[in-house]
């Protein structure tokens, strides 16, 4: 895996910084950070599927929604404990991941993106009309059990989950599985021509992505204590996840985290000036400029900056 001590030192430093943050920031900022952590989880999940394999999903809330609704229904309607409902939700989401995989065996590119978008729309319509006594229909559900109380505990829960998922993903992607998944995104036929089953690899990517989406979605609604279909299946939510991964640096683990934090704070700081949906115009414009400057994202810009600094240092 080519692990060096400095890798763990950097991860340790990152974790310590995040864990001491509540001592220095307001409760309001902490709530923004909680959302950033969940967005980072969803962006990592999206990146595992789309950033690595090149199968761009426009319907990631389909997976997040399966996780969220499964645990919401089990806890609210059937009084199942969260310790049981969350693992069931994750398994259900992984089954959902296999459903997303099916079109990926036949189609790719914009066709695949459109099918996933249709999947999200389908589940959005279904939760509203099929058994609204279970799903809560258009209004969703409130009064769900919560895992934590207060912003500080919520923050620690979200940051722990995000770090655990990020570190696991980072480690897995450093193995030959990560190399093979990235190879699919570059040339699927050549992967097959190298003796690797592309179907098996795609299944691994889709299941891993669904695992993260299901876990993130389930824990997220047990942080909120409610579920609202309109917010969950909002097209802006999809684009926020995708843009976070893209401008952070698709195909990396740290990129989606950086992108999620950048976008969350950007949207939050724009709120007093642009309270409506116009905020999304500003952030899309900014994302576009960033993307044009460096298609590999902020993470690549960061490395370029370090390389430049290093060259300057050597010259002096």
């Amino acid at each position: 895996m080519g692990l060096r001590w400095h890798h763990f030192a950097l991860w340790g430093l990152f974790a310590v910084t995040l864990f001491v943050l509540p001592e220095f920031v307001s409760r309001g900022t902490l709530r923004t950070l909680i959302f950033a952590n969940f967005l980072a989880i969803f962006a990592i999940s999206w990146d595992t599927l789309s950033g690595r394999t090149g199968y761009i999903s426009f319907g990631h809330p389909f997976l997040i929604g399966i996780g969220a609704y499964t645990t919401a229904i089990l806890t609210k309607r059937f009084d199942v404990a969260m310790e049981i409902s969350i693992p069931i939700a994750v398994i259900a989401t992984m089954v959902g991941g296999l459903i997303v995989l099916l079109p990926a065996l036949r189609i790719k590119g914009s066709y695949f993106a459109l099918v996933t978008l249709a999947m999200m729309e389908l589940i959005y319509q279904l939760v509203q009309v099929i058994r609204p006594d279970l799903t809560g229909g258009t209004r969703g559900m409130s009064g769900l059990p919560t895992l934590t109380r207060g912003a500080v505990n919520g923050y620690y829960m979200s940051v722990s989950l995000m770090l655990a998922i990020a570190l696991t993903t980072w480690l897995v992607m450093r193995t030959r599985l990560g190399t093979a998944l990235s190879a699919i995104g570059m040339n699927e036929e050549a992967v097959s021509g190298s003796g690797l089953s592309v179907t098996k690899l795609k299944m691994a990517a889709f299941l891993f992505s669904a695992f993260i989406a299901g876990l993130g979605g389930a824990v997220y609604i047990h942080y909120l204590g409610s579920i609202a279909p309109r917010a969950l299946f909002d097209i802006n939510f999809v684009f926020t996840i995708i843009v976070a991964a893209l401008i952070g640096g698709a195909g990396t683990t740290v990129g989606p985290i950086a992108g999620a934090f950048f976008l969350t704070f950007l949207l939050e700081y724009l709120r007093p000036y642009l309270p409506g949906a116009e905020r999304y115009m500003v952030y899309s414009g900014l994302a576009l400029i960033l993307y044009m400057a460096q298609p590999k994202g902020m993470w690549e810009l960061f490395f370029q900056g370090i390389a430049k600094f290093d060259r300057l240092g050597r010259r002096e």
């Binding site: 190399t179 990235s182 040339n187 036929e189 190298s194 690797l196």
Partner: peptide, 25 residues
Amino acid sequence: RPFSDMSVAENIRVGLTPDSIWQMI
């Protein structure tokens, strides 16, 4: 048909990779 964003070593690595998810990890 090289993997364009991978180094020469990583390109060869793909060919050396066993077709088993468990062994890949």
